[in-house]
Design a protein around this nucleic acid. Sequence first.
DNA 1: CTTTGTTATGTAAGCGCTTACATTCGGCTG
DNA 2: CAGCCGAATGTAAGCGCTTACATAACAAAG
Lengths: 338, 338
Amino acid sequence: MGKQQASPEARSAGATIYSVAEHAGVSIATVSRVLQGATVVAETTKQKVLAAVEELGYVPLGAARSLAVRHHEAHGLVLPELSGPYYAELLMGFEARAAELAQSVVLVLTDSRTDLAAAVRQLATRVDAIAVFGSAASGDVVRLLRAKKPVVVIAGEASDGVEAVSAENLESARELAGHLLGHGRRRVLFVGDPDSGPDIRDRYAGFVAAHRDRGLTAAEPVRVALNEADGLVVARRLLNGELEADALMCANDELALSVMTSLQDAGRSVPGDVAVVGWDDVMTSRYVRPGLTTVRQPVHELGALAATRLHELVGGEAARSDARTLPTQLVVRSSCGC
Amino acid sequence: MGKQQASPEARSAGATIYSVAEHAGVSIATVSRVLQGATVVAETTKQKVLAAVEELGYVPLGAARSLAVRHHEAHGLVLPELSGPYYAELLMGFEARAAELAQSVVLVLTDSRTDLAAAVRQLATRVDAIAVFGSAASGDVVRLLRAKKPVVVIAGEASDGVEAVSAENLESARELAGHLLGHGRRRVLFVGDPDSGPDIRDRYAGFVAAHRDRGLTAAEPVRVALNEADGLVVARRLLNGELEADALMCANDELALSVMTSLQDAGRSVPGDVAVVGWDDVMTSRYVRPGLTTVRQPVHELGALAATRLHELVGGEAARSDARTLPTQLVVRSSCGC
DNA sequence: CTTTGTTATGTAAGCGCTTACATTCGGCTG
DNA sequence: CAGCCGAATGTAAGCGCTTACATAACAAAG
């Protein structure tokens, strides 16, 4: 409840390049020059200016600079949310790279928004370029943006003028499904909805390919959302006989963990009765017993790559029509039957 | 590698409030008015303007608006990093609230920065106010900022003109330690360094208080960093007899999980031989066997509170000298011996 | 009809920076 | 010592918006 003296606010509120210039006895151009460090300023003047800056607690107004130089020096990042390590890691990669490039990052999380289009339009107003996670926004939103700023889609569909970066899915999925089949499992189910995005679609395609490789035909996917709640649903359907399987290839770890522990809690043995594998290699997958076999994606690098491309696009480079794909890595633990 | 036609860029690059005004046959003031929606504009003019905006793909330049209205409509958030659910959840709470308040969020992660002070100075340039996580930046940095923009510290020390928001620590720690003592454990160790921040310090204080409550004296803390690696170290010291305990109160879940699983892998029983409890209630704590007894913090709310206070401070409200503290909740599973 | 009040719109003055260009001030050169 | 040149600094023109104030257009009132 205590009142504070208003002095610091008062100071900073008033400090502009003009007051600094006056205080230092130079022109505003000189102040700008020492702060930008581009051109040469005599050492003594420089010190005077710096002293004045210090004394007045001057912070340049970013908006004024942006207006004058005609760009924001900021990248936008649009993600669905941050629960689970996937998006967080992506964001860390993006932020780290953006920092190296001296770009601020402005974050928009779509799950908390009621009006996504408005949020994204407003974002476009404050940044030079935007990276959008594939599932975070519809193609319409991306196209809308594309007309205004450079855009790269992460783990989504490349399209006219919008480039995409993603991790490899098809081959890794084929390898993972092949691994399960190699253990002699013959009733393998893919859990997750291939229509929920291009990455899941590719994982299912790999699943199908692995079956085809050995002259088998793959089962239809069990179309559920990729979260804990739907994992419970799948487990129940398995337990009541509605679904039958000796192996489950889940579209991500959250789903896999949920199914696996539910099954175990109901007395089924994993991988004895049914093998379970996931995708993402979240931290829990390593702590759980049996350890979850999964696929590790170079998420950090993916974020970094997005930031890099954004920067290059802002720099005037043309969009690539070929998507950049980063390799993934199969992490074999014991839930697959190994 | 493909080249793209330059048309979209060309359009948006040129579109300003002037071109829109001209296209619609009105003055720039009118364009601004329909876009801001503040004052009344005749319906027909409004439509003309909107049509022109659409046709030209006009995006107002945020910097120009900020300069004119004299604020950024953005909040800064400084966090150490985002691995683990704690910071991610905090960020989500912050972002969601900021979105409601129509503020953009500019994120700075300090672990990826070589020059923190510079990063933070640059941040101050682009936002109206800044929330800093206590352990993310030194007091110096906070004071530096404070002289320029409103600041709130999350889970840190309130100080002259800088208000703090945090979750309750002392009483919950006292309760948790009391719980362990109530199970008859008598060689309880606190794992984590009380000097690593005010929150850990308070948790240790609660630990001590619980002992005092029953006429016992608490052991010295085992001073280690709050991460997986140091958990391994602690487990090793326990196994080789350097440390002796029948219960471990770890300063966070990451540490607790690491110690617990290492101990189990070495053949010790948890909670049989030694009880282990943590702090944070991360996702893994629920999946691991035995389930980890821990303390859940209202992290999302904490983030939201920070955003709210920032907004109020920007609105001219005076800083509160009393810290706001949010209640936590003991989550009892079975690693404590229950 | 003129006057007055109401709306709708236009005019123009900044907001605080960057930067091209102009100016000043000392040497150096011839 | 006039003439130049280059380094250091100053002058001023924007950057693209918002908004106070001026103006115009028109309806109602006198």
